[in-house]
Amino acid sequence: MEQDAAADSAAARLVGSFLERRREQIAQRWADEPLFRTVFTVSRDEAVEASKAVVDALSAVAVTGRLEDIEAPGFRAVRDQLGRMVASRARSGFTSAQIADEVAGLRGSVTELMRGEFPDPAAPDAKDCVLSLALLMGTLRLVVMETALSAGEELIARQRQQLLEVATPVIKLWEGVVAVPLIGTLDSARSQVVMESLLNAVVSEQARYAILDITGVPTVDTLVAQHLMKTVAAARLMGAECIVSGIRPAIAQTIVHLGIDLGTVLTHAGLADALAYALERQGIEVSPRATAGAGRL
């Protein structure tokens, strides 16, 4: 057993020095493999450089003998790069399993090079080295898989955040009137964002009227109704009036069925009605220009 272990670590060191020595050739070959070729499309040199970074990492890991440790410090240096590569492949529609297969595809060329190092590929030390290299490449595949998974999670979180921000534009409709047209399902997190953006706009625009238009909201449940009422209450505390517009008949029915009391909430059928109300309350009258303009474009 002890001898085995000693042989293993000797083989690992040999693999390490092999990778270091043949860095250039390996990188040249890898640059033509799908994983690097498809990510670094602009220049082949870039692909070669990226390959070299991965070879260096593998070499560093091999020297420490931690062939099967995905937490080995050597990998840390390339995690960022792998992450970017994985993200790029994922954007092209590849699943993490397919990406892992591409990593596995790197093994062939490097193993071939390694075999060429030994006069007799059947000798025990040659076999040990090839085995160690296979282990190491397997670990690289795991590292890539893991990077892919955590990148996926981050992506989802980031997109979620972006969606929240993008989906809630606050529009200034008139001097002193701001509005948010809501589209899509309202969950708790989004309702919070809507409430905050609308109330911040009330301050920045010094708007006395804030309109929440829910024409594009498919359903309203108890929680959403509560959020609407809280927004209205908060606006009132700030000295503004919040109007909810665009309650479709189906939603109105749901609200009644759920027994939700929107009693304190001022509602209007459409955004235009709400705006008309806000203007009227400010003493602004909008009317067609006197006769002369009729019929002109």
Partner: peptide, 23 residues
Amino acid sequence: MRPAVAITLAELGLTLPGLHTAL
């Protein structure tokens, strides 16, 4: 009243109905 304060009061259920407010 600041938005963060107003949101917190609304959440707290403290809507101070008798109070007049202004921006």
